[in-house]
Simulated scan of single mutants.
Amino acid sequence: MKKIAVDLHYLPNLEWFSSILEAEEILLFPKDDYQRQSYFNRTRILLANKVETLSIPIQGRRPRLPLDQIKIDFSQKWQSVHLRGIQSAYGKAPFFEFFFPYYLPVFENHIESLWDFNHKLLTICLKLLRWPVKVSVFESKPVSSDFLEQRRLIVPSRPFWERNFYQPTAYPQLFGLDFEPNLSILDLLFCMGPEAGNVLQSSAKKE
């Protein structure tokens, strides 16, 4: 069984999913330290005239806090901003009306833990992709080392082409003449529906 240790991201991008394509089990670690400038609280979607980064505000900026202790800041109306952005970006996409209802209740609930929020969204993504991968959460350290370590690799500060996970395979997007690679998995799911898994298969770099 191929096991891969990964970071938990907010509606992960296509590189993240390409990186776990061959995994039978992915390992998540809620006791890892929170890292600023990460994908833990941000994702990218394609609007009519730009790529928009959606960021979830968090309470405080304390370093070395475990990921599962990071709380969402609900004093800011980020939920309505994110939902409006997603609806504006993908409301006319072919599979929006089928897939969006799965996500809406998670956004509408007042989930204080960013870890729990992201985990629920990831579960939905994997379900819609029809991926049978097992997701294991390790609450304590250490854990056996019979896995492939991929944590701290996919970060906003470094472009995807510097890593060996993802090679863009173009698919029809709603906006723009040029294909915009490596957006949130929402872009692929809403645009391609059941074919999303095939696009990811062809987007994974072959060693």
Results as ranks from 00 to 15, higher is better:
Phe165Pro: 01
Trp16Glu: 03
Glu25Trp: 04
Leu27His: 06
Pro156Gln: 00
Leu129Asp: 05
Lys120Met: 10
Gln76Glu: 09
Val133Ala: 04
Cys125Trp: 04
Ser80Pro: 01
Lys206Asp: 10
Val81Leu: 14
Gly197Arg: 14
Gly193Ala: 06
Phe99Arg: 09
Gly91Met: 07
Lys205Ser: 12
Leu28Ala: 05
Phe147Ile: 01
Leu65Cys: 13
Gln87Cys: 12
Arg61Tyr: 08
Ser145Ala: 14
Ser113Ala: 07
Gln76Asp: 08
Ser18Lys: 02
Pro12Glu: 12
Ile124Pro: 09
Thr169Asp: 06
Lys50Ser: 15
Tyr103Cys: 09
Pro63Asn: 01
Leu183His: 08
Ile86Pro: 02
Val199Gln: 08
Pro181Lys: 05
Glu112Phe: 03
Tyr10Phe: 15
Leu46Pro: 02
Lys205Gly: 02
Asp146Glu: 11
Phe175His: 15
Val133Met: 10
Phe165Trp: 11
Asp187Gly: 04
Gly197Gln: 13
Tyr39Thr: 04
Leu153Ile: 15
Asp187Met: 04
Ser80Leu: 04
Arg130Pro: 02
Gln69Trp: 10
Ala23Tyr: 01
Tyr34Arg: 15
Asn109Phe: 06
Arg130Ser: 13
Phe17His: 06
Gln167Met: 08
Lys141Leu: 11
Phe179Thr: 05
Ser88Glu: 10
Gly85Val: 06
His110Ala: 08
Leu27Ala: 03
Asp68Val: 00
Val51Met: 04
Glu15Trp: 09
Ile124Met: 05
Ser202Pro: 00
Arg158Leu: 15
Pro172Asp: 01
Ser184Ile: 09
Gln79Ser: 05
Asp178Pro: 01
Pro30Gly: 10
Lys3Trp: 09
Leu121Glu: 07
Thr169Glu: 09
Ser203Asp: 08
Ser113Phe: 07
Val155Asn: 01
Cys191Gly: 01
Lys141Phe: 07
Phe107Ile: 08
Phe190Pro: 00
Ala89Leu: 06
Ile45Leu: 11
Ser140Val: 14
Tyr102Phe: 15
Gly91Arg: 05
Ile56Trp: 10
Phe99Thr: 06
Trp16Cys: 09
Pro105Gln: 09
Tyr103Ile: 06
Pro156His: 03
Lys92Ala: 07
Tyr166Gln: 05
Ile111Gly: 06
Ser202Trp: 03
Glu15Gly: 02
Pro57Thr: 00
Leu65Pro: 03
Phe100Asn: 05
Ser157Thr: 10
Gln35Thr: 11
Leu46Phe: 10
Lys205Leu: 14
Ser145Glu: 06
Arg42Trp: 11
Ile20Lys: 02
Tyr39Trp: 14
Cys125Thr: 10
Phe17Ile: 10
Arg130Ile: 05
Ala23Glu: 04
Gln35Glu: 09
Pro194Trp: 00
Arg44Val: 11
Ala170Tyr: 00
Ser145Tyr: 05
Gly176Arg: 03
Phe96Glu: 08
Asp32Gly: 08
Lys31Tyr: 14
Leu21Tyr: 15
Pro101Met: 07
Lys92Thr: 07
Gln76His: 09
